[in-house]
Amino acid sequence: MQLEIDLAGRRVVVLGAERASRRVVARYRAAGADVDRRETAQACTDAVLVGAALVVAVGDAVGEAPNADPDCAMDALRDRCRRSGALFVREAAAQGSGTVTLVGGGPGALGLLALDAAAALREADVVLYDRLAPTDALAELAPAADLVDVGKLPGHHRVPQAGINDLLVRYALDGNAVVRLKGGDPFVFGRGSEELAACLAARVPCRVVPGVSSAISVPAAAGIPVTHRGVSHLFTVVSGHAPLSDEEHEHLAGLGGTIVVLMGVSTLPQLVAGLGRAGMRPDMPVAVVERGYSASQRTTAGTLATIVTAAGAARCQSPAVLVIGEVVRVGLDLQGGAAHLARLTESLAS
């Protein structure tokens, strides 16, 4: 059962040591509550309970005597809260040792954030986040955390990757629960493996929470399936950060199926020229999906021969995902846009 209560301006008593209860205190203060922290259950007298809307016991014993039964102590405290009219809940204590959690935030839509990702953010002391992560509600998702922007812009890295690795380790060694929030999935062009390696080398416990990769989610947002029965039974994900070699173009053109390119707007001219030289037919459907899952999401469609002109006319910009293959035609057909692509193909043929 999950209950929601507006605690703005209400008094909340938190029972627990300062270090163990720090995240709980920060979370309720972020919700607007008037937080009264007490070290032990013994300090939570009947006078303290007067006017309290909620009592939060952090940990098990909550400072009771060593030989006391923590469950009995909690039952007694629960009964006193019931008599005073205050709600009573128990929460886990913050751990003393630092940890790092690499979290994939998906394409930026809050609803695509995994439950484990939301839980890690809720318990975080520090969040290092990228610009493509779901940051609009980050203060609410991580109410107890210091938020550190380490996002990278095309051609400009606010914090170099080595610096991010060092920050993760340093914050964790100071005893913090650190979350590295990245767009998409940490291990799909996210350099998450480098961050994991840095943590393991420093003996910092590190776990990975996968995210929904933009390679499949952004085409889906535009109604384009990356595979479709009878059309494409495979897809290849490529980084468009730098131009590909002639050999790579030949491999891609020879594989068939669907090609999905991330970070490929700036290298689109080289990509389509290279695929054309490698034998891909000029009327192969291509789509550029910009800002997937945002209010300004936009799809620009064309063919291998026309997409550079179409993208230039539309002033396509990053972040965007490129999709090359017959699945684009399938997606446009599902969206009622196949006629536009047919006109482009006919224009090319003439």
Rank of each mutant, 00 (worst) to 15 (best):
A242W: 04
R329V: 00
A305P: 03
G325C: 07
T300A: 13
V288N: 00
P269N: 13
G325R: 02
V265C: 10
D333W: 07
S294E: 13
L304C: 10
T258E: 04
L252H: 11
G279P: 10
V289F: 04
Q297M: 08
T299G: 09
T299I: 14
V327M: 08
G276E: 12
V289I: 14
A338M: 15
S296H: 12
A278C: 06
R291F: 07
V237K: 09
A320L: 07
H249R: 03
A320G: 06
L304D: 08
A310L: 08
D283Y: 15
R291D: 09
V330C: 06
Q270W: 06
G331E: 15
V321N: 01
Q317F: 09
V286H: 08
I259C: 06
R298L: 13
D333V: 09
V286W: 09
G325L: 02
A242Q: 12
A311L: 01
H251C: 11
G240Q: 03
V238S: 07
E247A: 14
L332C: 08
A313G: 11
R291W: 10
G223Y: 02
L304K: 03
Y293F: 12
L275K: 03
G279R: 14
G254A: 14
E290V: 02
E326Q: 11
C316I: 00
E247H: 10
L332W: 03
V321L: 03
G325Y: 00
C316S: 01
A313D: 11
A287Q: 06
G331Q: 14
H251K: 15
V231A: 06
T258C: 06
L255F: 14
V260S: 05
G336L: 12
A320K: 01
S296C: 11
L304N: 06
A295D: 15
E326S: 15
R329S: 10
L268A: 12
R315F: 00
G264A: 07
S318M: 14
G337H: 13
M280D: 10
S296Q: 14
R298A: 11
T258D: 05
A311M: 01
G276Y: 06
V260P: 03
Q335F: 11
A314N: 07
S294K: 13
T236Q: 07
L341P: 02
H241V: 13
Y293P: 04
H340E: 15
L332S: 01
E326A: 13
R329T: 03
A278V: 05
I259H: 01
V226K: 02
E290F: 04
A222D: 08
H241C: 15
P285H: 08
R281I: 04
V323W: 08
T227C: 01
V308E: 15
V261I: 08
A222H: 07
S294F: 11
T300G: 12
L334C: 08
E326K: 12
V231G: 04
R329A: 15
Q297R: 04
L271H: 08
T227S: 00
R281C: 02
G256Q: 09
D283V: 13
G336M: 14
A314H: 03
T303H: 09
